[in-house]
Design a protein around this nucleic acid. Structure first.
Lengths: 229, 229
DNA sequence: TGGCGAATGTGTGCGACTTCACGGAGCCCA
DNA sequence: TGGGCTCCGTGAAGTCGCACACATTCGCCA
């Protein structure tokens, strides 16, 4: 089995394809490699294809007019991204950047449309994917509007715990190692403020911070604190 | 033709149904009326149906833990809302509130799933709808993160102009009449700040404000100002 | 048409964040 | 194993926007 095919099968959406359908898709997909920091696509670039992350890690980000970067999402292996190519003919409005060396499979959107026509379950899967991501973005918006930076940090920690949490003894830790700058880019604050707030939360016994590794010591209290007021 | 059927046909998604399909859907849909200020659905309510606005106007909103309201979107007649019912079995996370007397058609999500299976074009339409709304929300997020309230107001005015702008002589006006409070709930600011900023923009000749009616006098300069720095 | 609630205009203090600046710690890799 | 880079910690000074308090105006409708 080709490596392209193997990667396709790892993606939820495609795991139930018939061998012929999978091979058809695989034959027309293009594999590309990117190094740390490489830009995979940019805004204003026409969106002709949908991407599947085979290995590595990717972030989806935007840049404000005055040059500050903000993060929409992180992509893990097996996940799809750039899927807004399926909606209309508008250009992309965000960046995709490789956070580490990554392998990416590009599927032409017409091939995916064809597959969707033949497989209603794939079509429904795409719909649900779009819906889930929309729900996530709305949660981000809710976490930011009218909230102090302390509340935003609490909120984003819970969100990350939900998406990337793993057990560590009696505690939870966030598998995704993020710098203070990246946390700041998630909540719309400065790097310095995030440093301060994380320090306070550590003092108050909510979390332990070790460089890029954050451990949640008291999840319940953190949830209460985040919901309070 | 029943009024329910007539309203269904006004909705882009359903206008090309066969008479049988339309009647089938119509027979199972439920029409309800709401008065100004009535809540159509709330968070934590299970999302069993998708709504179509037949007449009136609706806003989709959330509330922060400390009671401040923020607005996700406005819905106009012929538009669908509550469509996240199609994604998984999670409860709703937002409010839908009637802004004026409204008539609403509720379609059980299973009926819509059945229709989607029979009509790939409806399915694709739903997918695109979700994608468009996600793009819109992402634009909102981009407009808010790291930006001053002045920039946010400029941004939201352009967004509203795009969605609800109409020609008025050589100028453009925003068809949707919004209070300062509602504008504030769109950008995450206080009502007072919005009043100040609108006043400044009027002094600077960008816009004219008459109570709830905003006219854009110099669109190009406003775009430049919004993109600058 | 008078009255009342909603919407708008304005001012004052204050606090949270930002900006800028710099020192030190950790980490990768030649 | 040390040089250089990124990341983290901290302080001083300034600003923006918020909270709160009121006055005023508008528009609706009894």
């Amino acid at each position: 089995m080709s490596s392209k095919l193997w990667y396709l099968k790892r993606c939820d959406l495609f795991e139930r394809l018939t061998p012929e359908q999978a091979e058809q898709l695989e034959g027309r997909a293009i594999m590309r490699r990117f190094g740390r920091g490489d830009i995979i696509y940019l805004p204003s670039e026409m969106a002709r294809s949908v991407l599947v992350l085979a290995s590595g890690r990717v972030k989806i980000k935007g840049v404000t007019p005055d040059g500050k970067e903000f993060i929409y999402a992180f992509i893990e292996p097996g996940e799809i991204f750039g899927e807004l190519a399926l909606v209309g003919d508008s250009p992309r409005e965000e960046f995709a950047e490789a956070l580490e060396a990554s392998e990416i499979l590009a599927i032409d959107r017409d091939d995916l449309f064809a597959l969707m026509a033949a497989r209603p379950d794939v079509s429904l899967g795409i719909t649900k994917l779009l819906g889930l991501r929309r729900r996530r973005i709305e949660m981000r918006l809710r976490n930011i509007m009218f909230r102090s930076n302390r509340q935003r940090v609490l909120g984003v920690l819970l969100e990350l715990l939900d998406a990337y949490g793993e057990r560590s003894g009696s505690d939870w830790r966030i598998r995704l190692r993020l710098s203070h700058q990246e946390l700041a880019s998630l909540i719309g604050a400065t790097r310095e403020t995030v440093t301060i707030v994380l320090g306070q939360l550590q003092l108050e016994g909510f979390i332990r911070v070790q460089r890029r590794l954050i451990t949640i010591l008291d999840r319940d209290r953190l949830v209460a604190e985040s919901a309070a007021e």
